[in-house]
Structure formats: structure tokens, C-alpha cells
Amino acid sequence: MQITIVSGKGGTGKTSLAVSLAMTLENVQLLDADVDEPNCSLFLDLDTKLVAEAKIPIPEINYDLCTLCGACSSNCEYNALMKVPDQILVFEKMCHGCGLCSKICPENAITEVPRTIGYLYEGENKEFLFNFGSLIVGEELSTPVISQLKQLISKDKPIIVIDSPPGSSCPMVETVIDSDYVILVSEPTPFGLSDMKMVVKTLRILEKKFGVVINKDGVGNEELELFCQKEEIPVLLKIPFDLEIAKNYSKGVPFLNVLPEMDSKLKKMIVDIGEALE
């Protein structure tokens, strides 16, 4: 079972929930797919090592064959290629690695060469397997790093917990696209609700089963819960707004260690999710 934890707004508690949830489960794999800012490892006491590089293919022009016809640049969706009088410029960071240019070049003058844009890491502690991806600073495309990170999903683990990037754009979609269930963490504030609505819309288009975890319960207002009731979205769990949680968070201690009663609540949530999927 693959469960992905998303949020609309950043800072609502995806990582806290992902780490705490994974720690309550046995024989689990935790994947930190927030490759722009992976931070699950701050809460985990294990060593990680580099296992792979995330790469995308970019075009290389062979000028022995190129006739400067411009078919590549005029058809590039991402404006990564540009024809000037004596050459074709390649803007590496604009390139999404789709490969169209190499396929349509009438002279077969384009070959694709790999370019490293991120790194993939792994750490293990007994039955707890942890992977995360990290986008190289200055790179713009997190989606291919996430897609290559997901190739490290273990077939031997019964439960995979994935920490998604925030928002509702391509990186989030790539993270949830093959998940069985999505947990949407939100905080009960107008800002939290507004961003959550966009994620709800996205998840419905993707036809994903999902439920909501309300974090920092007690701040803000009732609007979030009313919205969930109206939209018939199950509220799976509430995590209280508690200064002790925040204090410990800043020391890298997940809320599970602050509120021991959360252990059984998180376990029950997984049982509930399993039932919802039947």
C-alpha cells in the first residue's frame, strides 16, 4: 500500500506526519519526495548514502550533420533550443528532456546526452527503509527527480509512506499519481483551507482516494471542518496545536515522541485507510 502525504500550503506538517506515521509502522519504506527541500532525515537517526544520480536527457547537436533548418527549436515546447544564424543554442536548464527534438530532426543531427540534476539517497535501520531525493541547487525541474526516486520503491515493503512537495502542481501530481491513498494535511486557518481546496480539486481530477488530517487543531476557525463535512471528506486525525510539539520539532524530535497517545491513533488511521481501500 502506497500512501502519500500532501498539503496545499507549506509548513502544515507533512514531514512531521510522514515521519511519525512511518515510525509507528513495521517493515515500512519512507520516501521523502520533497526534493527541493528534503528534510525527513532531520527527524531520523540513521545514516544515508548516495545511491544514484537523477538525470535528464538533453540534446547535443552534431554540426557535421545539422543544416540549421530550425525544426528542433521551432517545435521545442519549453524554448530550450534557439536558432541563431550560425548555430543552435541549447538552454540546458530550460530542457525538460522530452526528446522531441532528437526524434524530429530530419538530419538525425541530435543525440541525447544525460545531465545530472539531482541525487538519490538511501538509509536503512533494521526493517525501516528510507530514501530521499535532492535537487541540485540552481536546478529547476524537481519532477524528474521525484519520478526517478519512485523507482527506488521497494517491492518487499507492505507499506510505503511518501512525503510530497507542497502545492498542487506537477511535482505534487508526480508524487501522488500512483499512490493508493492520499493524506491531505491542513491547518484550520483561512490560508490553509484556501490552498487545501486546490489540492482537493487536483486529487479529484486524479480520481484519488483521500482523507484529511487536521494539524495544529485549535488555531484558526471551524471553516476547514465545515468544508470537509460539506464535501464528504473524511477527517482521519486531529493533531493538537501544542507548544511542546513545536519546541521538540525545532530539535528534530517528531510529535510521536511528544504525544505517546498518537502511536495508537496513527495505527488506527492506517487500519481505517486500509478499510476505505477495500
Binding site: 519549453y78 524554448n79 530550450a80 534557439m82 536558432k83 541563431v84 538552454f91 530550460m94
Partner: peptide, 19 residues
Amino acid sequence: PAVGARGGAGPRAVEFLSS
């Protein structure tokens, strides 16, 4: 023609001017 480009409007505009 580059005014509405999702990204890379600068280079696309240059390509246009060059042409």
C-alpha cells in the same frame, strides 16, 4: 511571438528578431 511563452521568452524573442 514570445510574449505568452511559459518559459524562455527571452531566447524565443531573440530568435524572432534574428530571423
